[in-house]
Design a protein around this nucleic acid. Sequence first.
DNA 1: AAGCGTTATTGACTTAAATCAAGCATTAGT
DNA 2: ACTAATGCTTGATTTAAGTCAATAACGCTT
Lengths: 231, 231
Amino acid sequence: MTSHIHCQNCSMATLCLPYLLSPEQTEKLDTIIQRHRPLQKRDLLVNSGQKLSFLYAVRSGSLKSYTLDSQGGEQIIDFHLPGDVIGFDGLIDGQHRSYTQALETTMLCEIPIQSLDQLSAELPGLRKQLLRVMSGELHASKTLLGTLNHHSAQQRLANFLVTLSSRFKQRGLSSREFRLSMTRADIGNYLGLSVETVSRILTQLQQDGVVAVKSKLVEIRELERLRALTL
Amino acid sequence: MTSHIHCQNCSMATLCLPYLLSPEQTEKLDTIIQRHRPLQKRDLLVNSGQKLSFLYAVRSGSLKSYTLDSQGGEQIIDFHLPGDVIGFDGLIDGQHRSYTQALETTMLCEIPIQSLDQLSAELPGLRKQLLRVMSGELHASKTLLGTLNHHSAQQRLANFLVTLSSRFKQRGLSSREFRLSMTRADIGNYLGLSVETVSRILTQLQQDGVVAVKSKLVEIRELERLRALTL
DNA sequence: AAGCGTTATTGACTTAAATCAAGCATTAGT
DNA sequence: ACTAATGCTTGATTTAAGTCAATAACGCTT
């Protein structure tokens, strides 16, 4: 069936593993990739501790990854958007290191690690892109560390919005207006803030005319002012 | 000269890239690796923005990596011990993403990225270990995120000491007694705490008999109690 | 369209850690 | 060995953000 989804016609290809592969090479990659059944909101994609046999690439929708602390509380460590690849942090010992849950209806591709490794021996571009994607995640994670350690609640939230905005832009979506698929509590958890603080700062940013927030919908009215607030 | 340092006789080989390579394969890896000139305390290994042509493996000593914030302040994002490989976060665009500075006299190996990539096409074990090491770093970074976001100053510092202890153990050094090559200010910066808070908590842990601290020297007296304090 | 559970907002109060300030200790350099 | 500089500790005070509490607004499900 030609209507099936393929890397060759996937709009996220430039962010995902096919980046820099030739059409023929992309076709090769495509043969090892399967579509995963669609997830509904709250469905778990992977459990922490589960054997890691596949990486997952997000086609549409979004997810959050979290670990559990000693009292069973969530510690959100990532939000995944289309084009993101999930599972790299488990390659160290072949186990997923976190729970990953859909925030809305979500479509995914399933990439068998075994075949991916074999193919990467053959394709230098794929090898390079694998390292690039992991490196990017590592860099993002370390940058976030710096941000959280050294910035106020307002700076963290401004940074969160600016980062989301630019991620949407990369994905060909509007960077000015977007929907927060996660709750305020999720945002707070991710940024190390209480829900109340997130809420208060959002209303304050709105009063200052920097953003307009209507429930889950965010409009960035003055990107440059918002960016200035991250520093 | 046979007294030269080689991967084949390096005590850090099990943590570093040679892990899981056969003696012959390790020898191949060794041929592309150069020794770097020794660094003295405060010497910079790399500057942020500098072209990334080599990864660096720590042979002995230690370093810190940091970025600069908008006011020129350090944001420490990593401490590197022997066996660690430095530079992975720059593969995304071929630039180092942080400053890396020696905390004491430090010996390093220099690994040309170009040759490493070529060799990894040939050696599946090397490919795997590259991904493992990056994955481990990614996991550590995300775990730290969770720790900092959701834990008190005491929990953060206890976690820091426990983590350091287990890293020293992995390296065949004492996990009970070790030297902090970084200053209290560095620790605070890394954990998102003020120097004063770090100092106060260390004295408090000492009064409680969990650790004994004499300037830079730390003795962990009751590891299990310290571990309990991280939760 | 009504009603219930979840999610978000807002206000009053508390607290953990930052900041400010001063003195002490260790290290490095002449 | 002596001095300067850097690093560390301890105490007093302030403050940003957390907690507690109450209400309001969504958004499912029937």
